[in-house]
Design a protein around this nucleic acid. Structure first.
Length: 402
RNA sequence: CGGGGCAUAGUGAAACGGCUAUCACGAGUCUUUUGGGAAGAUUUAUUCUGAGUUCGAAUCUCAGUGCCCCGACCA
């Protein structure tokens, strides 16, 4: 994409009201725009990041046999009265119409599956969606980390017995680790024991360490498991070690064994009248985006991991347009996603600063200095600049993306 | 929902109750520039809303609304 065509502008100074790093950087770089507290527009660059994270999540969900659907955001009151959750404060209500905006989907998926799971032969089933959730948060905060409207992946699984649920639960856990790895969050994300709700002893959260987080977790220095403050004792429940390190973290995923909690009120039973067991597995897409920015940045701006970056390569032209256009064509022919800074009214300094702020992982500079047959190549997270021959360009770029 | 803070141009700031509301950045036009936010000229406002006090309000008072932060809450 030609940057001269991008309608968003970067801004130099931090917006006065934004205190969290992710909102400051994302707004300054033109990834998102705040409409109201906890409500954001995703601009072209930001939307590309959202789509990239969604793609990763989708691939890993499909890998564990989950099927994608899309449920409505408008929910009838009746469904929610069956579980006694119509009057929770999270629900945005449209009272006159007896409708509410969905903040989770157990109340929709359970009656839906009742029409499709008629016997043990129809089990197990794994269904997910990626969809906008609405939560009437008493206090939206920290940019994308806690919104009132946000994008979430929610997966629900349906099982004949506990063993089957346990096996799939474990599979989802592993899929989540892959997602965090591909999102560049693995290093700072810990599997965390949390309270389990009604039927199971624990649930598992995936907590990313960041000062912007809102939970306190305790990481066991011996086995690497983390424990949420709400259930913390003196020792690690896994290995009994007392060597626990306190950290602030943001929950970027949560997996739960629901067991019969929702199959009971909705009468989701097999042919013998036995309740079907359920699991649910959430992943905050836009929250993960915020968490990536919080954990991957420097004083100049964001530093996107490869797979989530809005573009793979930032090509910068400094008054050597003929060669720049040629490089742009070469890269596009190899199917690289390129943001091409072809702007003629910007100085080199402005282009470099915008480039660092936006944070695309690979930078290529074409200028009078680099001449007719060479270009500069630099990684966002390294200082080193290499001068390479244009005929070796693709080879060098490939090396970088391996 | 409790507590605290803030609200002035697109962005960030300034202005004792008193002159035509000031400055920087951005953006527009023109000229000169061009490897880390370049220079000059010129243009760019319903001071959040409503009421009140006052000869006079961006400034004081009351109410509202919005935003940020701390806490509570948080499948």
């Amino acid at each position: 994409m030609k940057q001269s065509n991008l309608f968003t502008k970067t801004i130099k100074e931090n917006p006065k009201d934004e205190k969290s790093l992710n909102s400051q950087l994302l707004i300054r770089a033109g990834f998102i725009d705040k409409l109201s507290s906890g409500i954001y527009t995703f601009l072209p660059l930001g939307l590309k990041v959202v789509k990239n994270i969604e793609k990763i999540v989708r691939e890993e969900m499909n890998e564990i046999e989950a099927q994608e659907i899309l449920m409505p955001a408008l929910h009838p009151k009746d469904n929610w009265e069956k579980t006694g959750r119509w009057d929770v404060k999270e629900m945005f209500k449209i009272e006159d119409e007896e409708l509410g905006l969905g903040w989770t989907h157990e109340e929709i998926i359970t009656p839906l599956m009742k029409r499709h799971i008629l016997s043990y032969r129809d089990l197990p089933k794994y269904i997910y969606q990626i969809q906008t959730k609405f939560r009437n948060e008493p206090r939206a905060k920290s940019g994308l980390l806690r919104g009132r409207e946000f994008i979430m992946k929610d997966l629900y699984s349906f099982h004949e017995n506990e063993d089957d649920l346990d096996v799939y639960y474990e599979k989802v856990k592993q899929a989540y680790f892959k997602i965090y790895e591909r999102c560049g969050l693995k290093e700072k994300t810990y599997l965390t024991l949390a309270s389990g709700g009604t039927f199971s002893e624990y649930s598992h959260e995936f907590q990313t360490i960041t000062p912007a987080g809102e939970d306190m977790i305790y990481i066991c220095n011996k086995c690497g498991l983390a424990i949420n403050k709400e259930i913390k004792g003196d020792t690690c429940p896994n290995c009994n070690s007392k060597d626990l390190k306190e950290e602030k973290a943001i929950e970027v995923g949560n997996i739960f064994k629901l067991n019969k909690k929702y199959s009971e009120p909705f009468n989701l039973k097999d042919e013998k009248g036995k309740e079907i067991l359920m699991g649910c597995y959430g992943f905050g897409i836009t929250r993960a985006m915020g968490a990536i920015v919080e954990t991957s940045n420097d004083e100049k701006g964001m530093v996107w991991p490869f797979e989530v970056s809005p573009f793979q390569i930032h090509l910068i032209d400094l008054d050597n347009k003929e060669i720049s256009e040629k490089i742009y064509d070469i890269l596009q022919n190899e199917n690289y996603e390129v943001l091409y800074d072809d702007r003629e009214d910007k100085t080199a300094g402005e282009k470099f600063n915008d480039c660092d702020l936006i944070g695309i992982p690979l930078r290529i500079v074409v200028s009078k200095k680099t001449g007719e047959d060479k270009v500069e190549i630099k990684k966002r997270n390294e200082e080193k600049i290499e001068l390479i021959n244009i005929k070796d360009l693709i080879k060098n770029v490939e090396r970088f993306f391996k």
